[in-house]
Nucleic acid binder design. Structure first.
Lengths: 395, 395
DNA sequence: TGCGTTTCGTCAACTGCCTTGACGAAACCA
DNA sequence: TGGTTTCGTCAAGGCAGTTGACGAAACGCA
């Protein structure tokens, strides 16, 4: 570790305090960080020059004495671009440094069995529109992050069975297709980014360590420990969808039997509820199908209720095992389980409280973001990169 | 972060390189760390003054040129004390800074339903003997760490059902009872320390991230991620013993049904194998009972084989779920599963390979340490504290 | 209105720690 | 014996945070 590294960390720490307490005077920042007023002034000057913070009004914190100058995050310069490829839509979203949404766009599209190149081209068009719209607002998009519905192997190739893709070299495609920004483009699993979205835009930092269930066609879990994604040794951590919950149950392409997502995934639930005909081959996307299901549930449809409760029990069983291994503070129900929560949540809570050690039952909360968590998480992760090391933007 | 913090880290980094490459010259250390030769010399001087490192012979690394002075870890000064309280024994162990065992002592004792104060007193006597023996070898015991068979709640009170203890304020008892050393005494779950023992003394650093199953009366798992124990939000991570594997199975004191340790714990296996009479109330400790079981297995006893294979299947089922959530590189079978590995391991491997995603099957290895992992891990964790921040011993 | 009090932010000098560049020391080779 | 190579140290320098003092800007009270 060299003096330069020390400075990078101190800039990050200071920016974090500004973000957490803005508007805040230099004197209070000194108290918060333990630095001297001199050091705070120097660091603030560096951040201000990079356009990350700016001085505001005079503020009077105490009763007497000279008022201080408010330092606040600069919401009119650096911005982050989040992109998402999903089975039935593409989405983009721009956040400013204060994590406010400044632009959103969602395009319905059937992306199944399409050439990855075509999709990346369409995504790039979305990205360019987003960057242009941001520029019109005076924002400078410094980086992008892409959420993808699949997992990455050790060579960073994407396997996305729900898109019909396997072994797709995403890093290369995105690097060529997307507009060049100051920070390199990144990509990650939809479940991981949705979990991060929850951290920044959902139930928020009060969650502690948590496990965020992303129910879609597959079922994934994003695991957040200490504010960061827990990925496991190969990046496959949180593959909740392939925990076996039904011994001797239906076979799964993964090679197992009775995997959770065969029993409680979107398609399994819709089929069990008698809604298969509505979706198969029709134009109705998943979100519409789930709305239809919720309609049935609210009208008290017996078959739909049975289907959803059974899915809730299976999900509860898988989560009970996961919780005993991970011991999170909270379990967040996201994706399709968010609209279905009134029926699913009691089942999950029952499964988690049976056999809880020493009262270690995590709270079960419902995601307010539902399907939007992933794009928001993607855009947020760009902002997070800047927060973690503002020196990246010093030029 | 202040300059002093930077120095602490750099000392730690340098000590780490010395440990990894000793004997090593200052010039090579400079190449390894990226520091300049000047800085290396300064840092080495500080470590040498604290007695952590010392100069050795001249060594000739290249073909030509002036030979360098070998810097090596000083194995004759700082030492760490590991202590263990278990159901049927107390143990102590002293390691030097190079993690060599310099003293070991194990005392058989039935610690069930004893007063915690009595046990701590007995443990303190063991600790004093260990410190004295270390002193006789010229070693300075700088700290101690205690392995305990139970979990700690948020208030750091110990709950150890197998000892008949609940809500025991261990930190206080140990603080008063144990000899005062330069670093404060620490304590941790036996499963966690056993997992760390494996890291330093067992299959070693080649394991990557792993899950170490400690099969004893209960079944715990120590989870190592990036060389550190993964504890979860409340410190209950890795409670593998209470994953439900037998729906509608026997009830467990934890409140659940069909918990793994009711089905594959030591007592369940011995009972199923028809060995209950041998242990219940008799003087034979667990290790003897397991030896007896291994004897039966080797002689081909039908009932014993059935019992152990069934336990292996249950363990495999629980591990399969844990592995999909955590995605470790390796699963280590320790505790009683170490001697039983020839029979248990194939079952576990079968369970893990069914439904493995994208070839993400962790290797299953057998602990060479078996029951000794926890004391070694405890002593090793003291050494680790010094390695992580050698500045603790500067004064 | 004027002056003391309080708090804010900045300035100049200082210290700690790593780096630079040069140099003497210690080996080998011719 | 002298040239070459590599090792470790030394003096000077630079970066970054600290110290202590001081001017600036508000309020309160006479």
């Amino acid at each position: 570790m060299r003096p330069g590294t020390m400075r990078e960390r101190n800039l990050a720490m200071l920016l974090g305090e500004v973000f957490a307490h803005e508007p805040v005077t230099r004197a209070r920042l000194a108290a918060l960080t333990g630095f001297t007023k001199t050091t705070v002034s120097n660091l603030v000057a560096v951040l201000a020059e990079a356009g990350l913070v700016r001085d505001g009004e005079l503020v009077h914190e105490g009763e007497r004495g000279r008022p201080g100058v408010a330092v606040a995050v600069n919401r009119d310069r650096a911005a982050g671009l989040g992109l998402e490829v999903n089975v039935d839509y593409l989405a983009a979203c721009v956040l400013d440094l204060g994590r406010r949404v400044r632009y959103r766009h969602l395009v319905a599209a059937d992306n199944r069995d399409q050439q990855p190149e075509r999709i990346v081209t369409a995504l790039a068009r979305l990205a360019e529109q987003a960057v242009a719209s941001a520029a019109a607002q005076g924002l400078d998009v410094v980086g992008a992050s892409v959420a993808l519905p699949g997992v990455f192997d050790r060579a960073d190739a994407l396997h996305a069975p729900n898109l019909g893709w396997s072994n797709v070299p995403m890093a290369g495609l995105l690097g060529e297709g997307l507009p060049t920004l100051r920070l390199a483009a990144e990509h990650d699993n939809e479940a991981n980014l949705a979990a991060l979205g929850e951290l920044w835009f959902g139930a928020g930092r009060t969650l502690g360590d948590y496990l965020h269930v992303s129910g879609e066609i597959g079922i994934g879990a994003g695991i957040i420990v200490g504010g960061q994604v827990f990925r496991g040794a190969r990046g496959f951590a949180g593959e909740l969808g392939h925990v076996a919950v039904a011994p001797g149950g239906p076979p799964c392409p993964c090679g197992g039997r009775g995997c959770l997502e065969r029993v409680a995934g979107q398609e399994a639930i819709l089929a069990a509820a008698g809604l298969t005909g509505v979706t198969a081959g029709s134009a109705a996307g998943p979100r519409e199908s789930i709305s239809a299901l919720v309609g049935l549930l609210e009208s008290g449809d017996r078959r739909a209720l049975e289907a959803v409760l059974a899915a809730g029990r299976s999900l509860g069983a898988a989560l009970a095992a996961a919780v005993k291994v991970l011991d999170p503070d909270t379990v967040v129900l996201g994706g399709i389980f968010s609209p279905l929560a009134p029926w699913v949540r009691p089942e999950v809570e029952a499964a988690l409280s049976a056999g809880a050690l020493y009262g270690a039952v995590p709270a079960v909360v419902v995601s307010p973001l539902a399907g939007d968590a992933a794009v928001l998480g993607a855009a947020g992760s760009v902002i997070e990169r800047v927060h973690a090391n503002p020196a990246l933007l010093l030029h």
